[in-house]
Amino acid sequence: MIQTKDLTYRYSGEETITFPDIYCDSKEILLVLGASGVGKTTLLHLLGGILRIQKGSILIDGADFKSFSDTQTDHFRGKHIGIVFQQNHFVKSLTSLENVMLAQQLAGHNTDKKRAQALLDRLNIGDKSSKYTNDLSQGEKQRVAIARALINKPKIILADELTSALDDMNCNEVLNLLQEQAHEADSALIVVTHDTRLKEKINRKIILER
């Protein structure tokens, strides 16, 4: 589903970061582990088309990002890539449910309120659907973000530091929920983290080093 080759990135005035080749198929989970500052977020942004590729290539379902314009990248990402950030932002004037539905609309799909609500229900925050995201706790926000990433049944789900801020119990629950939903949506799931607790829970892993 997603395949990278000879990917490197260099911020101006800094050393070049070289990434190992990554491969992840649908219904698979890949853990990308690494300490702070090794370029985890850079990799995630490259995979998500947020950062333009300088060298190397990323193929997603056979499509090459490199040839896309900004707008094409935005549209492709909206349709096929779901991202859960470490720090999740929402449109403040919209409720949780509306934020999830906004993802449907911006991806060019028809909004489906029932499906959005069902997804929030599955993530155990169905009762918060009419709340504004500013009124939610961090954990609740993360679940809304997961719902938003999942709603369009993307080919790839990217999760940045999904569990770093959570205690063991919540860590397990969130990971399980995401895994389950990714599996159901036939998505490839890539979790980027420094949280070593996940090592035992996910089989396929890649370790980023300088």
Binding site: D74, R77, G78, H89, F90, V91, L102, L106
Partner: peptide
């Protein structure tokens, strides 16, 4: 103030024009 939500809208597929 809304630069994050504008960024997130782009992540979700809204182009610059939008």
């Amino acid at each position: 103030e809304r630069r994050y939500e504008l960024a997130i809208m782009r992540v979700l597929g809204a182009g610059r024009m939008k």
